[in-house]
């Protein structure tokens, strides 16, 4: 029974990343908490792992926090958890650095990735909530506005707007590049675009030929194939044309 509760605890309280075996022995009361943390040392020693892990070769920890687990947490919980993770990451960085200095193996380096993943997930959830709130209140996402622009070298680009000291029309140096004789219309940019288009065209052509040849050889090897599946897999290939070609002719009497 005790074992079962331990396993449940492990699964439900998700994890505090600091590997504390004390967690496994914790009573069921701990399950009521939204997340479990160790007693804060409130000291510079928080930059180091707990003392019993110093000479360990293998430190076992749980998995990272998942998005769905974080979505059901309150904002305050997420805020607290962020700082727990931040401290944990600092601790891991410190230990990793010291291990490198002393030419030791840093035990379980994947812990850093797990913490980082959890932090990324928290940020995603907070962002989701922020967007939802802004949409409800203002009808906009509240995110940084993004615009489709033509970049300096003439390619379409997503531009994330930012703050400038002077308005756009006053920025003569920037405006100059987009004028009739500006950089955007220069020979260099035109040449670049020409070559770029050529390259893209060649890639497309090669992909087309590759698919067509592949379909021909497939027809040669598997003449009784499901044609609809083939059509779905290679929508751009003219299958009737491929059937008529010489390469699709197998080593058998033709059926027509």
């Amino acid at each position: 029974m005790n074992k079962l509760t331990n396993i449940l605890l492990r699964n439900t309280i998700a994890l505090c990343h600091r590997s504390q075996n004390a967690l496994l022995g914790a009573s069921v009361v701990a399950a009521k908490k939204d997340f479990h943390t160790t007693h804060a040392a409130q000291d510079l020693m928080e930059f180091f792992d707990s003392k019993k892990n110093w000479s360990e070769n293998n430190i076992r920890v749980g998995r990272a926090w998942k998005l769905d687990e974080l979505r059901i947490k309150s904002n305050t919980d997420l805020h607290k958890l962020w700082y727990v993770l931040l401290k944990e990451r600092n601790m891991l960085y410190t230990m990793e650095h010291e291990c490198k200095e002393k030419v030791r193996l840093f035990p379980n380096p994947e812990r850093i990735d797990k913490v980082q993943e959890s932090m990324n997930n928290i940020e995603t959830v907070v962002k989701e909530r922020n967007v939802a709130y802004y949409k409800l209140e203002t009808g906009e996402t509240g995110e940084r506005p993004v615009e489709d622009v033509v970049s300096l070298i003439g390619l379409p680009e997503k531009y994330e707007k930012k703050e400038y000291a002077i308005p756009q029309f006053m920025n003569t140096r920037w405006v100059r590049t987009y004028l009739e004789n500006g950089y955007i219309n220069s020979i260099a940019v035109k040449k670049f675009l020409r070559l770029y288009k050529e390259k893209q065209h060649n890639e497309e052509r090669k992909a087309r030929n590759r698919d067509f040849n592949h379909v021909q050889h497939l027809l040669k090897r598997f003449p009784d194939m499901d044609m609809e599946k083939l059509k779905a897999e290679y929508p751009n290939v003219d299958i009737e044309k491929a059937k008529r070609s010489k390469k699709a002719r197998g080593h058998f009497f033709p059926k027509y």
Partner: peptide, 12 residues
């Protein structure tokens, strides 16, 4: 700053 992503590590 609500969610700082600064890191610090204590070194020798």
């Amino acid at each position: 700053v609500f969610l700082p992503n600064f890191w610090m590590k204590l070194v020798r």
